[in-house]
Amino acid sequence: MRDLSDELLMWYDGHARAMPWRVPPDQSKAGQRPDPYFIWMSEVMLQQTTVAAVKEYFRKFTGLWPTVRDLAAAEDADVMAAWAGLGYYARARNLLKCARVIVAEHDGVFPSDYDDLLKLPGIGPYTAAAMSAIAFNQHATVLDGNVERVMARMYDIHDPLPGVKPVLMKYAEALTPRGRPGDYAQAVMDLGATICTPKNPACGICPWRDPCAARQAGTAAELPKKTPKKKTPVRLGYVYVARRDDGAWLLETRPEKGLLGGMLAFPSSDWSDDPTPAPPLDADWKDSGQEARHTFTHFHLRLKVMVADVPDNLDPTRGHFVPHHAFVPSALPTAMRKVFDLVPRRDATIEPESR
């Protein structure tokens, strides 16, 4: 096992991906540790999101809020707006909660102990392990989708995910070295992301090609196996886009709990098999003939886009009007930006391309 870990670390020393939150392996071996705030931020953002998408957001967030104290002091609405487009918005809410706990209860310093990290909002077993290993160089084992794939192929495991996770974790734990655990964690994730890829794995250049049981058996491309997913349901709804004569747009802040929690959005009905129309004000609503479609983790959403031009003196029963000059489409979550893109423009001052 130690030989395998050493081989992977040697490969990592020459092939590590450059990440804005990482310390390169030569500096890591010299004792330099990454900022725990950066590792935490990146790991939260990377949950169910690609590295390519996260890099831009990570730079934006750490530019706006360079330290955990800066983030803890930020306005909720500003953080949610900066997160818009990254999806899974509960992560942003937990990001703020966690930052404030770190400042209030830990004097702005992240705990290094795995069990203490698990007590923080939004930090589960994987994130706690990644932070322990990468930020604090402690002996902890990471098991994300990349590592699951590598382990399933290394040992030719055909039992399907997610049930086989405990077995894959045992193999991953056995391979995790005492020395350089942080570099090893990043190495095995890089291996899965760049060589042991879901399709067409590059087995010929893999540092673990010789001992890989699935390569020897010719089964690498079909692993890991997964339990078949159930058919994704479809939910329907109405979304209401009202604009006053002075150009202001009607928006509302969605409830903290639930989908798009805490985000600015166009008012909408319930999202269900049989939604009930719920216009936010009394107006001459017209069906735009457009349908905004968006996919969440567990369902597909289809929103019928209703539009209305309203006078300046009309007050809504829900939400508030945002002046034209203060309306920032990029602050909307992706589902609502799709709605915005479908609404006919009165003028050319706000265009989809500008976002």
Score class of each variant (00 low, 15 high):
D159A: 12
G179C: 07
V188Y: 15
K165P: 00
G192N: 09
G192K: 09
D183L: 08
Y171D: 01
Y155C: 06
G182Y: 06
E148N: 06
V188R: 12
D183N: 03
V147T: 02
D190Q: 02
L161C: 08
R178Q: 12
P162M: 15
V164Q: 06
P162N: 14
M169H: 03
G182M: 08
M151G: 07
Y184N: 10
V147L: 04
G163P: 04
V188G: 11
G182S: 07
V150G: 01
G163F: 14
Y171H: 15
L175T: 03
P181A: 09
P162T: 13
V188K: 12
K170S: 14
Y184H: 11
M151D: 06
Y171E: 06
D159Y: 10
G192Q: 09
Y155P: 01
E173A: 14
A187R: 02
R180F: 15
L191G: 00
G182N: 05
V188N: 11
A172C: 00
M169L: 07
P160D: 11
R153Q: 03
T176Q: 11
L168V: 07
R178S: 13
R149D: 03
I157W: 09
V150T: 02
R180C: 13
A172T: 00
D183E: 11
M189I: 01
P177L: 12
R180S: 13
M189E: 00
V188T: 12
R180W: 15
R149Y: 08
T176K: 10
P181H: 11
P166M: 15
M189K: 00
P160G: 11
Y184R: 10
A187H: 03
K170D: 15
I157D: 05
V167C: 08
E148I: 06
E148S: 13
M151Y: 12
K165G: 03
E173F: 13
L161G: 04
